[in-house]
Nucleic acid binder design. Structure first.
Length: 296
DNA sequence: CCGCGTCAAGTTCAT
DNA sequence: ATGAACTTGACGCGG
């Protein structure tokens, strides 16, 4: 049993697309249900592929139910209509022991000063939890979120996050984990809020390089400090890893993993129990590359 | 049928 | 001002 498991996000580039969607203007109930069905079947294909290739960690795309949190789509009873396909995916997750998670997009900003942005974010987070609930997963199936904006006052913005967090359902609160970002909120800030809310911390190695903190600690020590925020019910500690894309603006993810750099990182986490999410453009190919390299 | 402009939504930073 | 970055390219109009 491996201590470190490695996974990828949303798309398997060897399989047909998993993300059918539609325009808001064409989002009729029948259309959304049909696209959701196709997306769930494609997700089942990915999970079977993962199991065959020994990949246990996977991030489910937020777009499974297109436009799910939008007011036009919100009332559509997709969980009932798609119960069979949701059950099939849930069975695959349970049978394969896959660790799944989700990661809402850049538009989910729980600490915005704008009430309509917060409201949309609450709906979006509830949709993520609803989907993970419908798949029969427990609180180890995490929803990874960035803290949000700063708006010129970081302390007040963290305060707003805390008060809006309290408005979330038990399901979202049991699944939510906070990630450091490359511009505003350092691992140190995230750990502060984590201590207050009792929410685990996903350490993103790449973001930490651009937006460092806790400079008296080694990277390994920071990872261990984040590890303390994970309780047994949360599942193994999760961590994000990626490389920069040379020549592209800071923050953009590389086409493929750099094996040399990953090997150095792997030495640094030796002996820790981690689920590592690889954020690279070539997805499963990089995971296979790394697993082959480590197995060799 | 194919090319390509556009798509629900926020915030920040670099040019 | 504009574009690009972030979890993910696909939809669908016009020729």
């Amino acid at each position: 049993m491996d201590m470190v498991r490695i996974g990828y996000a949303c798309v398997n580039t060897e399989l047909p697309t998993s993300s059918r969607t539609c325009r808001l203007a064409s989002a009729t109930p029948e259309r959304v249900i049909e696209l959701g069905r196709e997306n769930l079947r494609a997700l089942a294909d990915i999970l079977r592929w993962n199991e065959r290739h020994g990949i246990a960690v996977f991030r489910i795309s937020s777009g499974i139910i297109p436009l799910a949190s939008h007011s036009v789509v919100r009332g559509i009873p997709w969980a009932e209509r798609l119960a069979d396909d949701l059950g099939a995916v849930g069975d695959l997750i349970a049978a394969s022991g896959a660790r799944v998670s989700m990661h809402p997009g850049q538009y989910t900003v729980l600490n915005s000063p704008r009430p309509e942005v917060v409201s949309a974010s609450l709906f979006e987070l509830e949709y993520h939890a609803h989907l993970l609930d419908a798949l029969g997963t427990g609180p180890e199936a995490k929803i990874v979120l960035h803290l949000g904006g700063v708006y010129g006052d970081q302390a007040a913005s963290m305060e707003r996050f805390a008060s809006n967090f309290a408005r979330l359902s038990t399901s979202v609160r049991s699944r939510l984990v906070l990630e450091n970002d490359e511009k505003s909120y350092t691992a140190s800030s995230i750990l502060d809020l984590s201590a207050r809310l009792g929410v685990p911390v996903v350490f993103d190695v790449f973001h930490h390089q651009y937006n460092p903190s806790l400079k008296n600690l080694s990277t390994r020590q920071i990872i261990q400090r984040c590890g303390v925020t994970w309780q047994p019910v949360d599942g193994p500690q999760k961590l994000h890893y990626s490389d920069p894309w040379p020549g592209k603006p800071a923050g953009s993810h590389a086409q493929t993993v750099d094996l040399q750099a990953f090997a150095r990182f792997y030495d640094l986490i030796a002996g820790l129990n981690l689920d590592v999410m690889l954020e690279v453009k070539d997805k499963q190919a990089s995971v296979m590359k790394v697993m082959a390299y480590l197995g060799a």
